[in-house]
């Protein structure tokens, strides 16, 4: 009976995760573009569009960070086009080439940390095995 209850919990674990946005943290080769005003102050919190090669749809949009940086993962693409403008007329519109990544390719850096659902599932399986052990093996004299 205990084992059946524990087994019944397993689908519930998956259902609880169905409507959540899951996150993972990984390391990957990144490119950093730093934008500054002429006086050295960072071009911070301003919107940008980043295009891969000659594509018309941006590969990435967002805002520069507090240090005026745009960080992205170029992968195999070398040619990029960055547009960033503030409402007061400052900005940049420039095509550039990124250096070829050295060492680990981007895909190899995509090792994620343990997925939360997998961790729960693993824990449930361990509990199930423990329950089965308690029910059938330890019952013997």
């Amino acid at each position: 009976m205990k084992a059946l209850c524990l087994l019944a919990l397993l689908p519930a674990v998956g259902a609880a995760q169905a409507h959540q946005v899951l996150s993972s943290v990984s390391g990957a080769p990144a490119t950093v573009v730093t934008l500054r005003y002429g006086d050295g102050k960072p071009f911070s919190y301003e919107g940008y569009e980043l295009f891969r090669g000659g594509e018309g749809l941006p590969a990435q949009v967002g805002r520069t960070d507090a240090q005026g940086r745009v960080v992205f993962l170029p992968g195999a693409a070398r040619q990029w086009h960055l547009r960033a403008f503030s409402q007061d007329g400052h900005g940049v519109d420039r095509r550039f080439e990124v250096a070829a990544p050295q060492g680990t390719p981007a895909a190899a850096g995509d090792r994620t940390l343990l997925h939360p659902a997998l961790a729960i599932l693993g824990g449930a399986l361990l509990l199930t095995l423990f329950a089965l052990y308690q029910l059938f093996l330890r019952r013997r004299p």
């Binding site: 080769p29 990144a30 490119t31 950093v32 573009v33 730093t34």
Partner: peptide
């Protein structure tokens, strides 16, 4: 965690158009 930072040719720290 390993993050490699590639330096962009000709754009890093370039002044903005004013």
């Amino acid at each position: 965690m390993k993050i490699l930072v590639c330096v962009i040719l000709g754009l890093a720290f370039s002044p903005l158009l004013a």
